[in-house]
Design a protein around this nucleic acid. Structure first.
Lengths: 221, 221, 221, 221
DNA sequence: GATGAATGAGAATTCATTCAT
DNA sequence: GATGAATGAATTCTCATTCAT
């Protein structure tokens, strides 16, 4: 009952791409990692890009299918939102290298296939934005819902950048922290716009900084 | 009053790395982009890694220095937190490719230099966590503050993944959306833990999904 | 019945290294010389250093194995010494470029592999020093034997610097000149020519050895 | 009382060539080793080849001039031969990297300059062959004298391959070992030690010669 | 005399891919 | 299906040399 070679390759590829990036992963190393000859590889995937495409599209398929199936069990908005968060967190907690590939290599695919991944991503985003909308104050304009959804995805996507179960506890605990922040914020009270305006005004003189310090640098050699 | 060649190179490199990743950027293309021969390049930076290091370390230096100088103007916790957010958003709104490099290529550097970048990153994180802590309910355990700070950075770091001023309005508006989410959450009321537990229990049968769908796939060719 | 590609490469490499030194030989030129593309090369040897190592270690292996097998046929010290000289001269007379590589590029290898070559060299030297010792006056201190052995190797190793069969006669004549110098010096009695002829006759069946052992080699990668 | 920059460069170059071969020495590293900029280098030598030529031709000039001056002091053949050996050994004992360059890079120069070095080498060889001839049995054919002289040079040239004063004693001791081998061989009477001591005493005033003639040189360009 | 900067050529090596077996 | 061998193109980086200052 081995996993299929195809699946085995996909897993190894995800790990390699996560570790070194799409360009940093080579077919050779991939072949070595799976104990196959480089040439054998092309019996399963016609090109390096095809491997990446398979990872990304199939991962989104799984993610979306699971989310949909889970949401069928809940009616109340906050429950549904949490179910979505929990699904996302659990998936990525156990497959963080896939997460990396999904996020970091979003632009590595060329147009024809890139579009197909984007479609899946959009479906997933749309689902999330509906859930976000349903818990926000009635009448919130869509533009605000959209931006807020992106922010929520920021929280969810950044997990791979820091989360370590040994250090930060089980995935469900992480999901709760996230849900707490997303639902009630840090203070359970939205910061007053007047305060925000005050700060902005105070900083109005602060021009956008130089991209990079452009002063004297010690010469090389 | 030209920018120094060194600075010009750094900017072009940041753009290239952002677009294709560190491994996807080649010294050749970089040289072409700055109108120099490949060999000339090595008069300014001794290696490709040195270019990446310069971008990352100098960007963090600028970011941290600015944040510190801004915070000197405010006393109230929420004001200070917003000043931090605003500084971050403004910097990256105008230099989104630098942001990408900072985030996506965090692991591309080898140990000696990687540590130096990590130090700077830690200083920046520590500053943020103090601000987060100061607006959270008194007595929140540090572990929770830490995780929450990471979540906040998720929101801040993901900006480059979606933010487009033309579509989503000026940076200051984005900063407000973020600050609203972070301070008051979506509903200005933390979701009840009982509800969370209910959902978790309901999903307890849902094993971690296969990394990638492992079914039959149409054969290639 | 072609020679193996591996062996063909090794021969061409020895010629190139002899002509231009290790640093002066380029993989490009080597590839051209063997009618292969540069990249194809790396199917046989993983690096330039590996090529040099193969030449040096395999040449010493052949040389040492032959010397040992020859010495088994003689008992008298002077005969044994001459057999050693003759073996050395014949080998290098027919493969002078290998000799050059052995001598001129002794320091081109990096520590791990360099040590392995040094071990072989030491075994060969030790064998020679025993023979030298056995013909020197009884009681000669080892320090003197050692230095004298080095001097004998000086004579033997320098052959490639000047010897041209067309101009200086057959290898066996060269071996005699060397043996005369070594045994009796410039001004004294030399080894009896009858003895020399005896040894030569005994070795007449020993064809010039393969430049480099051309047997089975462990495959790379 | 600094050495001239020219001479300093020549010394550093000899060391570098000895260590890494002519192709392995780069003008850059040479410049670094002498604390100059690469460009400054070309104020002293018009090309890399010119550096090598200067080392080789000047070294031979010094060697030959010294040998000639020494030989003027002796009449007896064996004394004269030993004086030649002693001069050679002393020179190279103190300047082993020059010796390496002379021997290992004999073919690195292109035809026009290579011939000039060869001329000097021939003069040196001819001198030696006369000395060798004068101690060999009357009537030895020139072909045999020539081959024997090459063998003697083998002994002399190989010194750099093994001689270490710490381990093998002072240069004069080495010269004796060589002279013993050359005169009486391994098994026969050697040159009387009293004779050797006489020559050494006679040359005691002859300090180790400058590595390379450090006089006025015609300016380049 | 000195030097920072420039550069075409070439170094070793790796790449994704193909193909005969 | 598997694979050893082949390869053109690209990789990072170094080379000797030049030249304006």
């Amino acid at each position: 009952m081995h996993p299929s070679p195809r699946s085995e390759i996909l897993h190894a590829a995800a790990r390699a791409v996560a570790a070194h990036g799409f360009h940093g992963m080579s077919m050779r190393k991939l072949a070595q990692a799976t104990g196959r000859s480089t040439a054998s590889f092309y019996n399963y995937f016609p090109s390096k890009e095809a491997v990446l495409f398979a990872i990304q599209s199939e991962a989104f398929d799984v993610l979306l299918a699971r989310a949909r199936s889970l949401l069928g069990r809940f009616v109340e908005p906050e429950e549904r939102l949490y179910a979505f968060v929990l699904n996302h967190v659990r998936y990525f907690a156990s497959h963080d290298h896939v997460m990396r590939v999904l996020i970091q290599e979003a632009t590595a695919l060329a147009p024809p296939q890139r579009g197909l991944v984007r479609e899946r991503k959009l479906a997933y985003f749309t689902l999330a934005s509906e859930l976000v909308s349903s818990v926000m104050p009635e009448g919130t304009p869509y533009a605000e819902v959209e931006k807020t959804t992106y922010c929520v995805f920021g929280v969810l996507n950044w997990i791979y950048g820091w989360y370590d179960p040994e250090q930060h506890g089980a995935p469900d605990g992480l999901a709760r922290t996230i849900m707490h922040l997303v639902s009630g914020g840090l203070v359970e009270r939205r910061t007053d716009d007047a305060l925000l305006a005050r700060v902005e005004a105070e900083l109005s003189d602060h021009a956008a900084p130089a991209l990079i310090a452009d002063g004297e640098q010690e010469p090389i050699r």
